[in-house]
């Protein structure tokens, strides 16, 4: 009975995500525009803000690269129809591709054939978490290619520790330069293992920009990396200025004594995400956007 609700909500989330930035991201861009001193940098932030307004007003994707569709699912262990979620999300993706429309972005790596509907093997990608309760929380993150292409994993020497981590992040940001469409948001994760660090770094991009890390030590480190990144002078679109990043979000897992994996996942200024909660009685609450 819930599959239709899930499909409808997922479709709406994709549409919200690609047409309307979450308020925390929009506010961060406005703040950057106020503070940016480079004249060329300001032209870029102004164009971004105008573009964001137009996309919201006309309900058009804010960027033509509507990304690969990724879902984060927090499913209550007592949620009915757990087995129907995957199909409902695929159907929603197909519908969204046709109706919004989205750019078809799912290509077979060997044959180069584009499926035309943004679904394919493992795509949309689903990140599952089973939680207590009987509800379902859905988040969609359409992830663009430009920023994904510069995302990196480093297996640094554990003896380098936090200093090595900072150096790796800054070097990655400089190597990326203009490519990820700055101002960027950085998801940085340490520990776990190669795959775990990358996954955590990407999920860190879901955290609201204006929310401080709950661990004061990590909050301080986030701020420190943020200041370093913004001292590089890369600036909006790589044209120079002090706004290179809007935020840095740190995450970690405990690590193997011999390993120090550091993952840096880049997010362009078009930080598209949207979340909703579906209750057991079918009631829907949108969490990231105001829905009238």
């Amino acid at each position: 009975m819930f599959d239709k609700v899930i499909e409808t909500v997922a479709f709406k989330l994709i549409k919200l995500a690609v047409t309307e930035l979450p308020r925390d991201v929009e506010r961060a861009l406005q703040q950057a525009y106020k503070e940016e001193e480079s004249e060329t940098g300001r032209t870029q932030l102004k164009a971004i803000l105008e573009n964001v307004e137009l996309a919201k007003k006309y309900k058009i994707p804010m960027c033509q690269d509507t990304g690969i569709i990724i879902f984060y699912i927090k499913a209550g262990s007592k949620f009915k129809d757990l087995h129907k979620i995957e199909e409902a999300l695929r159907d929603a993706t197909i519908k969204a591709t046709k109706e919004i429309p989205l750019r078809p972005n799912a290509v077979n790596p060997f044959t180069r054939k584009n499926t035309g509907n943004n679904t394919g093997r493992y795509i949309p990608f689903l990140n599952w978490e089973i939680v207590q309760g009987n509800g379902l929380e859905l988040t969609v993150m359409p992830k663009g290619g430009g920023s994904e292409n510069v995302s990196v994993l480093g297996m640094i020497n554990p003896s380098q520790g936090i200093e090595g981590l900072k150096k790796f992040v800054i070097d990655s940001v400089i190597a990326a330069g203009a490519k990820p469409c700055p101002p960027i948001i950085l998801g940085v994760a340490v520990g776990g293992g190669a795959d775990i660090a990358i996954k955590l770094a990407k999920a860190a991009l879901l955290k609201p920009l204006d929310q401080l890390n709950t661990d004061p030590k990590l909050a301080k480190l986030e701020k420190e990396i943020f200041n370093l990144v913004n001292s590089t002078g890369i600036g909006p679109m790589g044209l120079g200025g002090k706004t290179t990043a809007l935020a840095v979000k740190l995450e970690f897992a405990h690590r193997h004594p011999a390993s120090y994996p550091v993952a840096v996942v880049f997010q362009c200024w078009a930080a598209r995400r949207a979340s909703a909660h579906i209750s057991a009685n079918g009631e829907v609450e949108y969490l990231s956007h105001r829905v009238i």
């Binding site: 032209t43 164009a47 573009n51 137009l54 804010m62 663009g144 469409c181 679109m237």
Partner: peptide, 13 residues
């Protein structure tokens, strides 16, 4: 010339 990356609606308008 550099056009603002991602500003797809501005361009389309």
């Amino acid at each position: 010339g550099a056009f603002t990356g991602g500003a797809a609606v501005l361009a389309a308008r």
